[in-house]
């Protein structure tokens, strides 16, 4: 079985970090598995963990009284699930459902935050990488809101 350090080097998100950084981050991680249809977390849950998806698909959903479960987007292998662990009030902002069997590495958010506070260089590096993901997902959401297929082409 591969160590978490080794799994991290495969991911785009952690690629390029030093072996010392990876070891430090891996110390906050553990491998987890979710069966199809189970929920990784629900909206409003304490956001004490985030996940690096290694296998499978996770659907991000928001429950609406009139429309039921609405899938906002899906995440797959290599994607990072959740960033609400980074900022107060540390609460999940949507539901996350395993659309099939999901294997992931779960990271203890408080553990990572503590290490980033102690090592601002690492903290800044991780924050830049997270900001990149947020920027990409914000751009995707803007495009999604435009409903470009609704009226033409």
């Amino acid at each position: 079985m591969r160590t978490i350090d080794a799994l991290l080097t495969d991911s785009t998100f952690f690629r390029g970090l030093s072996p010392d950084d990876l070891t430090m981050i891996a110390g906050c991680g553990s491998n987890v598995q979710f069966q199809a249809g189970t929920y990784v977390f629900y909206e409003g849950d304490p956001s004490d963990q985030f996940y690096l998806i290694r296998h499978g698909t996770v659907a991000l959903e928001i429950a609406s009284p009139d429309r039921g479960r609405v899938v906002i987007s899906t995440l797959g292998p290599g994607d990072l699930l959740s960033w609400s662990w980074l900022l107060p009030p540390y609460r999940k902002q949507c539901d996350a459902r395993a659309a099939g069997v999901v294997r992931a590495t779960a990271f203890d958010g408080a553990c990572i935050r503590t290490k980033c506070d102690a090592d601002p260089r690492l903290g800044y590096e991780l924050l830049k990488r997270l900001a990149q993901i947020m920027e990409e997902q914000l751009a995707a959401t803007r495009l999604q809101l435009l409903d470009v297929y609704g009226t033409s082409a």
Binding site: T57, A59, E61, R67, R69, V70, V71, I72, S73, T74, G76, R97, A99, G100, A140, L143, Q144, D147, Y149
Partner: peptide, 16 residues
């Protein structure tokens, strides 16, 4: 797909 109204009937990706 940009939107999947029936999550249990669509097993593909959602997003642009």
């Amino acid at each position: 797909v940009d939107a999947a109204a029936e999550p249990d009937a669509w097993h593909g990706q959602v997003g642009v």
